[in-house]
Amino acid sequence: MRFFTQHISAAIGALGEFQRRLTSNLMTTTVIGIALALPAIFILALDNLAEISQDWDGTPSANLYLERTLSEPEQAALQTQIDELAGITGSILIGAEQGKTTFAERTGMAEMLNLLEENPFPAVIQATPVSTLAPNEVAELVNQLADLPGVEDVRLDQTWLQRLQTIVELASRATGLIGALLAIAVVLVVGNTIRLDIENRRSEIEIMKLIGGTDAFVRRPFVYAGFWHGLIGGMLAWILSAIVITVIARPANRLAGLYDSGFALSGPWLADGLTIVATGVLLSLTGAWVAVTQHLRRIEPGEGT
């Protein structure tokens, strides 16, 4: 109980100190807010993008090029075998002759084809995977199809999806790195603020120690100061990222519309916001803790007086 009330009073006291130097403290928290908001915005945008590639409705069809040695009954048997696979909704068999005819019709190169002694087209089975498959599940399915006897090669019409995934992966790595750097920045900013705070209140700390304040007691207001910086900075980051996302949501959605995508950018709501705030508090507490452990022990009433 006594422990509890001491913490409450330290927390309130630290808030009072925060308010006493409001301007400079608000500047510090704004720096924290911006440093947290930047990676938060990128992470949210990437989360949104990653969602598109997950629930993308235009699942690509896989084209299976069959070996030429396969007879027509064998091709039909293979199609039945593929239709029975889990993850395949259906398939179309395009025979070698049909393929040649279609090509000739579309390109008008029938005469050129006739010059060839052999039909250059293999038979193809166009298989459609289940639309709910995740990208990695699709890839797994493709491998499975390629391993079937009589299948020479499998091509998945998904370059667009792969490019998007690669871009998302690249961007999320970059965001991760930038986020880590900014996290370090937050720790240092808070650490430095608390260090200055400790220097400003040196005589107060000395007096506290002089009349029997334990290390924990002396430390507490500074750690709580870090807590408040993180909390306020984190809330600011939440607000900033919500504003930014709201501002860019409309053009982003219009762009998505141009690509026939149902993609809609959504902002940081409760769970994301709480994560941002919690991250801010955690980083600031770390910064405060570093400053306190480095500087507080050195201030002793016995030295230099």
């Binding site: 422990f3 009330t5 001491q6 107060e204 007096i207 029997g212």
Partner: peptide, 26 residues
């Protein structure tokens, strides 16, 4: 302990200064 230069906290009231040892002791 009593010092020649008093060692009071200038930004706290007389009451708060005197209360400090009790606050520390909980």
């Amino acid at each position: 302990m009593i010092f020649q230069d008093h060692r009071l906290l200038p930004d706290r009231s007389v009451f708060d200064n005197v209360a400090l040892p009790l606050v520390i002791a909980g």
